[in-house]
Nucleic acid binder design. Structure first.
Length: 492
RNA sequence: GCGCCGGUGGCGAAGCGGCUAACGCGCAGGUCUGCAAAACCUGUACUCGCGGGUUCGAUUCCCGCCCGGCGCUCCA
């Protein structure tokens, strides 16, 4: 099944497929590791994960590169302020970033590329641009890209910059630039700042050159898809195109994917507004990683997502429904054979699911047939109509759902445990919700003991004691379900 | 100011020219249960921001207006 994906460059939904016999080459802009990632960051990475996983589900081999920006103005500022070496500073946040990716079950790209490990590549690209007359050096030793060298500038973001007068908004003298829109390729070293001694002088790379250089290093001068958050479209991606295509005279990325922003309570999340949440904040409030994943993934990537705590509660319940159903199927015993109606329903659900994802990754639409199948199958189980063959087929449909959504399999304990541990080690103990701690205060053994006592009480028809135990467990976040097959319990 | 996106039930959110307007959550009633939970059933939008237009027919296309958001600067 071929994925059809909106392409910012053409403004249309285009097929996305690799050159036959080759892996699909993807470059996705990664984090700048100067702080903990917030949920807006992860919405983007999560949506790219959906893309990855859907392609993999269709058997498309991938070569996916993600950069780590471990040198930039903010990082330099922060390291100077903190008085630590740049690597020491970034390593901590890079590690945190990967932990967060794991918590959200975001797959690792095939290649992770750190900016600081690719300086020679960037320098070579700057030299190439200089040789072509598209880059120039200022007196203080910085290098700029000459926008006039690339007439197609603006083709991605559909901006017409011809009307922009040089100097209208920026004081030219201050920047020593030929044109106000020219952007930095290389920034001359300032005293006390981290810098590299290179053929283009002592300094550090500009942000844009980093991505062009590393994309070309691992994917070649032309590749299939470039992805990132919508804010990167201009100027970052536009600048990448300008640099790369000026140097190579080849199309840089054929397809561009941009993930729209997440809002919080209808407002843009920003550090200055202080209305942003990191993944860790949410885990410490007691929300499960799976709920965060589902909430951030369920609104298709081309729409703004308005994040609220209610949406996390909704997602939690929806996941419970799926997990309960999965458990019911996996643990139940069913008569051999097949039920023709269920077989057809399962196949239709799978087809609908796959078609929705293939249509520009419509995750909202893709969920629907799966939930419909859950209801149909639950009814069939209630009526004793579901057979072994049906169970196997439906489990395989759930498997395909989870190959992309990855929320039915329960991996929630580890991220929460780690977040609590992290909070304790970094003096943020007060951020841990008391309910979360209460919920975790009972061991499996203790639960089992109380359940055994309750079973005994029920046998003796001592319902008062049985209900008292149920209440006690409920206070600790343990929910119990009496079924024909015995007692099931789970942690809220 | 210029540009872009959106306004669908209590909430989230699909659908985008004609099917009973998906799906999830919530709520109300019912079945089951010692009672719950889970599951299922029924009900929750005579209608898709407002006003015009095009069309045999519009939530879906066009125009205007109102409201919300975003971009034009570092930002996922």
């Amino acid at each position: 099944m071929t994925l059809r994906l909106f392409n910012t460059l053409t403004g249309e939904v285009d097929a996305l497929a690799p050159v036959p016999g080759e892996p699909l080459r993807i470059y996705a802009c990664g984090p700048t590791v100067y702080d903990y990632g917030h949920i807006g960051n992860f919405r983007t990475f999560l949506q790219i994960d959906v893309l990855r996983r859907f392609l993999e589900l269709n058997g498309v081999p991938l070569r996916h590169v993600m950069n780590i920006t471990d040198v930039d103005d903010r990082i330099i500022q922060n390291t100077v302020a903190a008085g630590v070496a740049i690597h020491e500073y970034t390593a901590r946040f890079e590690q945190a970033f990967f932990e967060d990716l794991d918590a959200l079950r975001i797959e690792r790209p095939e290649i992770i590329a750190r900016a600081t490990e690719h300086i020679p590549r960037m320098v070579a690209l700057i030299e190439r641009l200089a040789a072509a007359g598209a880059a120039y050096r200022t007196e203080e030793g910085s290098w700029y890209f000459r926008l006039a060298a690339f007439p197609e500038y603006g083709k991605l973001s559909k901006k017409d910059l011809s009307g922009m007068e040089d100097g209208a908004r920026v004081d030219l003298d201050r920047y020593e630039k030929d044109s106000a829109r020219d952007f930095a390729l290389w920034k001359a070293a300032k005293p006390g700042e981290t810098s590299w001694d290179t053929a283009v002088g002592r300094g550090r790379p500009g942000w844009h050159i980093e991505c062009s250089a590393m994309a070309m290093e691992y994917l070649g001068e032309s590749f299939d898809l470039h992805a990132g958050g919508e804010d990167l479209m201009f100027p970052h991606h536009e600048n990448e195109i300008a640099q790369s295509e000026t140097a190579t005279h080849k199309p840089f990325a054929r397809h561009w994917m941009h993930v729209r922003f997440l809002l919080v309570d209808g407002r843009k999340m920003s550090k200055s507004e202080g209305n942003f949440f990191t993944l860790r904040d949410l885990l410490l409030k007691g929300y499960k990683a799976s709920a965060i994943r589902l909430a951030l993934v369920s609104v298709p990537y081309r729409h703004q997502l308005n994040f609220t705590f209610d949406s996390l509660t909704d997602a939690t319940r929806a996941i419970e429904r799926l997990r309960t159903f999965h458990q019911r199927l996996a643990a139940g015993s069913f008569a051999p054979g097949e039920n023709a109606g269920l077989q057809a329903a399962a196949r239709a659900a799978e087809a609908g699911y796959m078609a929705a994802l293939a249509d520009d990754l419509n995750t909202a639409e893709a969920r629907a047939p799966v939930f419909e199948l859950v209801r149909t199958a639950n009814t069939a189980i209630d009526e004793g109509q579901l057979r072994c063959g049906d169970r196997d087929l439906i489990l395989s449909v759930l498997g395909k759902f989870d190959a992309v959504f990855d929320v039915i399999g329960d991996h929630d304990e580890e991220p929460t445990r780690r977040a609590i541990e992290w909070a304790r080690q970094s003096g943020r103990e007060s951020d841990i919700a008391p309910e979360l701690l209460a919920r975790r205060s009972m061991t499996d053994e203790q639960v089992e003991m109380l359940l055994a006592e309750r079973a005994q009480a029920k046998k003796q028809r001592n319902f008062a004691r049985a209900d008292q135990i149920r209440g006690e467990l409920a206070e600790k976040g343990i929910v119990i379900e009496d079924s024909k097959e015995g007692v099931r319990w789970k942690r809220k």
